[in-house]
Design a binder for these strands. Structure first.
Lengths: 137, 137
DNA sequence: GTAGTCACTTGCATTTTGCAAGTCTATTGC
DNA sequence: GCAATAGACTTGCAAAATGCAAGTGACTAC
């Protein structure tokens, strides 16, 4: 009983990989992290506009799976920087395969390689505008 | 206005690939098809035991996305064989990346390479046993 | 002509998404 | 010090996806 693995579906490497990152958002978070993004705000402001509750849940799941680690970069208030573990970085090959396939077979798609945090500040303005609307009521 | 693409989330090749095959089952169907499986029954009897309603829906979606084609191999009753298009076969690289990552980072996982339809008949027996239970009522 | 098989479809409960808004902690302007 | 702003989440809830179980239609075997 060295490895008492009880797989959810099967022992297939593909099936188990999909159980970890086989949803519409996880790999996009990994993509952003590979591109140098590190904070919650930077991740939220990606072009795909991931819902905040989904992002929070995914960050927890990915951390639980050993794909990312969160390290506090400030106390008061506590803020975390999310970075990839070696296991997470290794997903780069999967991402690359998706990029190649997508560019070749889905017309109009491109490689998004926007460098890290740039452009995040511009988007954050629109984000907070909505909140005021209800305070005013 | 040559390509009036309206992407759901962004023009990113990864995001759009995930919109097509970014769920827990689609790539497993592609895996089986790459392994030589061709009929509904063969796909149903894969070790992951995909629910039949999900399989039917995925086959339609994958066909709509140009990843597979269904060709009738018999009339009366109509039966279809599902095969990969070049676009679908090209997903082999993505699958390969997942296999490599899974085997390296998820302990206990293996490469499932069971040849085509073998083993399907043994599983189909257990499948039909349940149906009798309600007919008897 | 009845049981069995294959390829689906249908019903429904559970789970997951995703939009919108709320909270919590701290900083800035006055 | 008090309102406004901001970043990082959390919460509520409607809609969609998932998954179990059973049903259907067209045949085959006996």
């Amino acid at each position: 009983m060295s490895t008492a693995k009880t797989f959810t579906r099967s022992a297939c490497a593909i099936a188990n990989s999909l159980d970890v990152v086989g949803d519409k958002w996880s790999l996009l978070v990994v993509r952003d992290l590979l591109h140098g993004k590190r904070t919650y705000g930077e991740l939220v402001n990606s072009p795909e506009r991931i819902p905040t509750n989904i992002l929070a849940e995914r960050l927890k799941r990915l951390e639980g799976a050993g794909i990312i680690v969160s390290t506090p970069y400030q106390q008061h208030p506590k803020r975390y920087a999310y970075t990839l573990t070696p296991k997470g970085s290794a997903l780069g090959d999967v991402l690359l395969a998706f990029v190649r396939w997508g560019k070749q077979h889905i017309p109009g798609t491109v490689t998004l390689n926007q460098g890290s945090a740039s452009g995040a500040s511009a988007a954050s303005t629109a984000n907070s505008r909505r909140r005021r609307a209800k305070r005013a009521g």
